[in-house]
Amino acid sequence: MFKILKKTQFSEKVFEFRVHAPRMAKHAHAGQFLMVRINETGERVPFTFANWNPEEGWVEFIFMVVGKTTECLSKLEEGDYIQDITGPLGKPTEIEGDRVAVIGGGVGLAIAYPVARMLCEQGKKVYVIMGARNKDLLILFEQFAALPLEELFVTTDDGSMGEKGVVTLPLARLCETDAIDSAFAVGPVPMMKFSARTCREHKIPIVASLNPIMVDGTGMCGCCRVEVGGETMFACVDGPDFNADLVDWDDLAHRQASYRAEEATSTKLYEEECACQK
């Protein structure tokens, strides 16, 4: 059982939990993830580390409410317990180059943040591009703004904050002005796919952190397999970071949609159950 030490709400649907996990805190690195099973009947869901503190013995992860599991999680409070948390899993993020664009979209910003922070600590020149559908969904703005960045860009689909449009607009400008020599992207599949395309046009290497469906997270089930450069790789043990230029994005998008119908059933039943209890 893992105790929730702190709960923070970033927006209507985005939350952060700090949980007590001393050994995990000692071994966590940027880009790695953990897997949560909320209770006895729960599924296993991966979340990337947002933050950790080995001295105080805790780790943090951020999640957005998208279905039953995340909805259930969002109802837990400080002092409550999560049944199982496994991690750290996956390989830590490694970025080559000295001038790096870190691109985060939606809840992917939670993953982009520790990567940007790590790159700053490594003394690299870091440009951050934050993207979201609207201002309310743009999380961690203050945290990013507090980092010693070269520049911070914000784009929203509706223009409610920063530039109206998508992350590839500032990314293309960074490429064109020769400001960066590498990039890291995490977020929805189309965002990563088009970021990769923009970088390819300018011959800038780009790494993406992928988020396929997982079951065990230790390389055993093959559920999270992705095609990278014509090879079958497992996001949980070979990744989650891959050369974005080589990823088969359409394949990933298809696999992510494998359980849409079941997810809808689960969420609907859960909402009905919650409505009954009110």
Binding site: T41, E43, K68, V215, D216, M220, C221, G222, C223
Partner: peptide, 22 residues
């Protein structure tokens, strides 16, 4: 088979939606 059996045996997907794993 690993995924098919893990979903069924470990995660009890045969009892979906009582168990969350589909």
């Amino acid at each position: 088979a690993n995924e098919y059996l893990t979903r069924t045996n470990l995660m009890r997907a045969y009892e979906f939606p009582e168990y969350d794993t589909p």
